[in-house]
Design a protein around this nucleic acid. Structure first.
Lengths: 160, 160
DNA sequence: AAAGAATAGTTACGTCTGCAACATTATGCC
DNA sequence: GGCATAATGTTGCAGACGTAACTATTCTTT
């Protein structure tokens, strides 16, 4: 009597979507975990947000840059750059110099304070990353980085 | 005169932190790209948020679950689960049944509508993932999944 | 059985976010 | 040169977020 009642839930289990095996979910979950582990450090130490951290790192790396260049380098929307720059300027970690050629643009760079504060964070960041890579295993970590770089360059699937 | 002026920028370039090679950044960037590519689909199709998508997927998979179980399964904070469940209930995609044993708890499950709507999204999700894996190459995709799972289980580095 | 601790889920609050609109300046076209 | 178009960066707004506080219920301890 009433055989097959349990069958009705999923017509074909091979078509079921398992969240824990779904690549977009796996990526976000791992990224949030790793990134939260690090961002909680600079949040606690210096009260920085993630966009602020990225702007600092970009300027440390590029020396001088404008907001558009920072956004391109750090994958930040221009409103995030704008707000992060404003906050860092108030702290006097970065300074602004108006561009003489193009008066819409401001050239930004780290102050002495900004460089010093970032140097400490960068040291911690490298340690954090090293610990992470050690736990993954160097081989696995290389494969991971390679895949992530590939995704960064890849055009995404569209239109479904 | 003034030799070495350019040297002062970075004392030791091997210690510099390059954002584009920094694993936490690479992870977040790739995750945001892949996840935004998919979430924009269900956002546009059905106006769903990411927590709502995850609650749907969890219930499709688990059949019946309470909010705590959903949160554990989908890596969602309880406030996100609460808000997502509320929104989905209003749409009549999920229904709530009070637990007789524990009156703090509500057992949740998909309605017929919810199942039907999710089935469409799941199909798209599988296609999206398949396209992604194809672009990565099956071998690279497997390595990526393996590393991501490892991260999900891993205890994070602490105390710096 | 009563008091205290713990758990499930909701909500209030301040913060961060993305989108769209905006002011300002630069560029292209005629 | 002058007008349309584009680019830079900022801001108003509404929505989503996390933290902490809260209510209601259950478990633990004595």
């Amino acid at each position: 009597m009433r055989e097959g009642a349990e069958i009705e839930r999923e017509a074909d289990d091979s078509e079921a979507l398992h969240l824990e095996a779904f690549l977009p979910y796996q990526l976000v979950r791992a990224a949030e975990k790793v990134s939260l582990g690090f961002s909680s450090i600079y949040k606690q130490r210096d009260g920085l947000t993630r966009p602020e951290w990225r702007v600092l790192a970009s300027l440390a790396q590029m020396g001088t840059a404008n907001a558009t260049e920072i956004g391109a380098h750090a994958s930040l929307h221009k409103t995030k750059v704008s707000r992060a720059v404003f906050a860092l300027e108030q702290r006097k970690w970065i300074k602004r110099r108006e561009d003489a050629q193009d008066r819409r643009v401001a050239q930004l760079e780290l102050t002495r304070t900004g460089k010093a504060r970032f140097a400490g964070l960068a040291r911690i960041g490298r340690q954090y990353e090293a610990a992470l890579i050690e736990r993954l295993g160097p081989r696995e970590a290389e494969a991971l980085k390679s895949a992530l770089e590939q995704i960064a360059k890849m055009p995404l699937p569209e239109r479904f």
